[in-house]
Structure formats: structure tokens, C-alpha cells
């Protein structure tokens, strides 16, 4: 057992958990942040993606100890109050989700993609960058559309800040 301290969605948290605990389990089981999902056992589907220190990472493949002291952002932490993150809004407006299960990981991954490319994205790049996120419902068509739409919105938002 170890004591894990980290910042999750802006709040300091501390938990006493087994060393074998994965970050995703800490988030879901201990902190009740169930928006982060688990869709596979082999680090491929991306349903569990959260940001660790600003980088989109598969939380099913991170031991809590590795994230000790880190700054974690989950799907629950990206909206500002009632105001959706531009990526969330773009997924809704472009019907970028159906069952919703892969969606939190998609959104967290997509935000990171836009950040890394400074909003300069084309369809082919988005498709390549989404390689680590599997969706079974949408055929990715509207997810790609959502990410491209959000890239524009995030650029505008950054320019305004």
C-alpha cells in the first residue's frame, strides 16, 4: 500500500491504495470519476485516456505510483462550469458520438492532438493521430469532423485569450 497524492481536475487528492492499482482504477473506484472508461486490456482502445501533466495518456497503463504528484485532468474536468470545452461542444454539434463509451477518451485525445498541432490539422492527420482510439459506433466520420471543427474553435479561443 502507498499513499498517493495528486491534483485531479484542479483539486488536491490523497489516497491510500495498493501499489498494483492502475491510475484508471484510482480515478473510477476511489475518486468516483467514472467518466474515464476501460474498453480493452491491451492499451489499444483509448477509452481510458486522461491528461497527465497536459499529455494524453492511457490511464489503464499507468501505475498510480507513476502518477504520484502529477496533475491529472479527466473528462469531468475540462468544461468551465456550464460552459463546455470547445472539443466537447464540437462532438455534440457534429454528432461525433453515439453510445458515448469511447467518447471521453476520444475527447481527451483530440484536445491533445489539437494542442500538439496548434490547431493546424487536416483530415488525414486527424485520422492518423486518432490511431490509439477505437470507436465501434461512428465509423469515425463525425469524430474526424468534430476534431477539425474544434481545432478551429480552439484556435479562435486561444487568439481571444
Amino acid at each position: 500500500m502507498s499513499t498517493i497524492k495528486m491534483t485531479v481536475n484542479g483539486k488536491s487528492v490523497s489516497a491510500e491504495v495498493e501499489d498494483r492499482t492502475l491510475l484508471v482504477n484510482l480515478l473510477r473506484d476511489t475518486l468516483n470519476l467514472t467518466g474515464t472508461h476501460v474498453g480493452c486490456d491491451t492499451s489499444q482502445c483509448g477509452a481510458c485516456i486522461v491528461h497527465i501533466d497536459g499529455k494524453a495518456v492511457k490511464s489503464c497503463t499507468v501505475l498510480v505510483g507513476q502518477a504520484n504528484g502529477a496533475n491529472i485532468t479527466t473528462i469531468e474536468g475540462i468544461a468551465r462550469g456550464d460552459e463546455l470545452h470547445p472539443m466537447q461542444a464540437a462532438f455534440r454539434d457534429n454528432h461525433g458520438l453515439q453510445c458515448g463509451y469511447c467518447t471521453p477518451g476520444m475527447i481527451m485525445s483530440a484536445i491533445d492532438i489539437v494542442n500538439r498541432h496548434h490547431g493546424d490539422l487536416d483530415e488525414q492527420t486527424v485520422r492518423h493521430e486518432l490511431e490509439g482510439n477505437i470507436c465501434r459506433c461512428t465509423g469515425y466520420h463525425n469524430i474526424v469532423k468534430s476534431v477539425l471543427d474544434a481545432a478551429g474553435r480552439m484556435k479562435v479561443a486561444q487568439a481571444a485569450e
Binding site: 467514472t34 476501460v38 466537447q88 471521453p104
Partner: peptide, 21 residues
């Protein structure tokens, strides 16, 4: 029209079986 159900899914507030304790 955009979907009524989407807000809970895009904010991580969906409630799937394994989310329930």
C-alpha cells in the same frame, strides 16, 4: 437537431453498469 443525451456523455456523466456502486 443535436442530441439531448450528448451532454452527459461528453462531460463524463454517463452512467454505465460498471460505473454503479
Amino acid at each position: 437537431v443535436v442530441r439531448k443525451e450528448d451532454r452527459r456523455f461528453i462531460t463524463g456523466r454517463g452512467r454505465y453498469v460498471d460505473d454503479i456502486k
